[in-house]
Amino acid sequence: MTYLVMGVILIVCTVLQIQMPGYAVLGGAKIPFLLSVCLYYSLTRETGVMLAAAFCAGFLQDSLSEIPLGYSAFLFCLLGWAVSRFRNFVVSESFVTPTFFGGVASLIFTISIYMWLAADGLVSFGAGRLFMRFVGAGFLGMICAPVVFFLTRKLDQLVGNVEFNEEIDVFE
């Protein structure tokens, strides 16, 4: 059932991420729905499931953009693993946790992928636009992650992956 919920939420988030426009005032940043899914699984599930979610989310993001295959998948896995190190120290149900991790992870992801793409000569942004893009990515991550966390948790509760009054963290 965990993988079924993961599949559904990945499809929904993929379509949303493609359809929502990039925002010019935020340097063209897109709402990071797929990264938020990866963060949800890294803060609530064991490493294997988290890596599977991160890989699928990254693979979808790469496939549906001009980013070479594997770049986002690799970075999502890396970020997911790094965030999962904090799993035992934070309360994933709290609103603050996804807001904080969403903002930080989105910022780090955007900086890393830009450096990677720029090194390959695929993109080249001016300093102003790049700055706005980084700020925008962090800001959108802070807004998007709590929403994705809330909806995925509700879906998990609905199908019985998680009890309504139970904490979802599965400690290894």
Partner: peptide
């Protein structure tokens, strides 16, 4: 059917 792709780094339409 969509504008901007999933990454938002390029100006594209689908």
């Amino acid at each position: 059917v969509s504008r901007g792709g999933a990454g938002g780094w390029w100006q594209t339409i689908t």
